[in-house]
Design a binder for these strands. Structure first.
Lengths: 144, 144
DNA sequence: AATGCAAATGCGAATGATTTGCAAAAAGAA
DNA sequence: TTCTTTTTGCAAATCATTCGCATTTGCATT
């Protein structure tokens, strides 16, 4: 089991290649996404964005998130059924451990679990398209 | 790995014990919940309910679902970020495989995966409060 | 640098799921 | 049956998100 680490890919190039225009709002949103460690929701992204340019609208944030999601540049999560929270799709797949007290998100990856999931789906006659594994936990008092 | 099977617990007794009144709407909703195999959302429950008593309101469905959830009698899921879907909290814990084409939900349970999750959380210094594992898949063409 | 046009934006209104306020109705105890 | 408290139905409010549309902007082309 390993932690994921953050990378900073050049999205502008990718967007251009996909025939998508590089606008000021998009540049700003992309910047926020690539420079954050957390998993902000649309409203949080919006607030960070208007600090840089107060003409950006919430709709544009939503539209940009949808665009980036379709391009595979970000992932969308709905922890606890709350509003969607986003993260850049850096490197390897990983799952999430959410701190129920703080809302913090810790990323982890386990090949064993991935393999088990495949086996289970196969046994039920299915191919996995994608999956979601979320652990909701609280910092343990006991020594690790 | 095993499938979960359906049981029909006596919720009225439980509700009474919790000091909650047994009303006509609640009885009807409870009946729907205990006699269904699927994981209906509030709207679906509402429609089934007004077939039995057309004076039941959607708010009451929502209120009842919240009540039952707090009592631990049902579980709430937000597959794919869609509307909440409910199921009675029968017997053992289980996870879900969602058929992306039909929306069908298959329940399964794997001790191995549960154990792995515990290990991972412990390694990260957390105790698991609860978790969510959803596999989104498509019926496989290949022989099982 | 100026032009043209499709793509993107901001705004506000629309949508879908869910919650809430409140007066009227029903449940359960006395 | 009466009383008190909980629940209900209804309509309006809220929250997250999307949409319509007139206006602006990116950028390929003169």
């Amino acid at each position: 089991m390993k932690h994921a680490i953050n990378q900073k890919p050049d999205y502008e190039k990718e967007l251009r290649k996909a025939g998508v225009r590089i606008t000021r709002p998009r540049r700003i949103i992309l910047d926020i996404l690539t420079s954050t460690e957390d998993h902000p929701d649309a409203m949080k992204i919006f607030h960070r964005a208007i600090e840089i340019d107060d003409s950006i609208s919430l709709s544009t944030v939503y539209r940009t998130m949808n665009l980036l999601e379709e391009m595979g540049a970000i992932h969308r999560h709905a922890f606890n059924g709350g509003p969607s929270r986003f993260e850049q799709a850096h490197g390897e797949h990983h799952d999430h451990l959410i701190d129920v007290d703080t809302g913090d998100v810790i990323e982890f990856q386990s090949d064993k679990i991935e393999k088990l999931q495949e086996e289970i789906a196969r046994a039920l006659g299915y191919d996995i398209i994608h999956h979601r594994l979320e652990l909701y936990g609280r910092k343990s008092k006991r020594p690790e």
